[in-house]
Amino acid sequence: MLAQLLVSGFAQGCLYALVALAMTVVYRATTVVNFGHGDLVMAGAFCVYVLVVLAGADFFLSAALAVVLLFALGWAIQAGLIRPILAGPHLSLAMMAIAVGYALRGGARVLWGREVLPFPKVFPQGIIKLGPVILSPSDLIVAGVVAATLAVLAFVFLATPVGKTAQAVFQSPRGAALVGIDVGAFHRTMWGIGAAMAALGGILIAPITLLYPDMAASTLIRGFAAMTLGGFGSLPGAVLGGLLLGVGELLVGAYVSTKLIDITAYLIIILVLLLRPSGLLGRPAVVRV
């Protein structure tokens, strides 16, 4: 059972990692935590649904299109709603993110709130047996997508100027602007990328949770837990935190009590912030006063 729990927890953790990665990208680049990220995940999945089921497009084309559409949505949210209040307090930014997410959810509810929508079956059915361990093809696909996303992000942030730009913009937007960086465009792009990654997450989660307006509500706080555990703002930390959370939930559920699965994430957040605010791989999260 232990081997199975570790493997299944790893697969589940990959989904948390993807959510945490997307939020980390936005946070690293813009210092804003997107409290509406879960609803972007939902929006991405509904995009695919509309394209495949209602417009009759091919799945892979629809998925690609959904990622592009969500990139545009993220870009537009930053340009239209975040930028005008960027000078305001953190609070307004957090509220704006919540309100935008709430609007997306409300909109989805108006359109599809009363029925259940089957998500197109795209992942191969069946199971894969590796000794005593059972896997489904979707587990492998999710792990593959997360690994690929991490590789791309690592390359972009470490081997291209984007990493330095992000660092500069994060530390001082004004300073970055002075040395010729188009901070506005950079912010918009990063919001776009964060939203595009949300779409990716939605496409991977939807076959599991299926489509409904609240489908991603619980992934948000798990994404936070993953970020906190790994270290806020650290890309490898987000992945590590996500994987540990996924495995931890299953171990707690199987060996302690299934009642504790739901609060593993909350306890991790509270304990990590109290005991080691920098998480496993991050920088200190506290201010000195």
Partner: peptide
């Protein structure tokens, strides 16, 4: 008091509410 502010405080208090 331990210096947890802004988004960290937000996430922590969110977890407290759910707990």
């Amino acid at each position: 008091l331990r210096g947890i502010r802004a988004f960290y405080l937000a996430i922590m208090t969110l977890a407290f509410g759910e707990l």
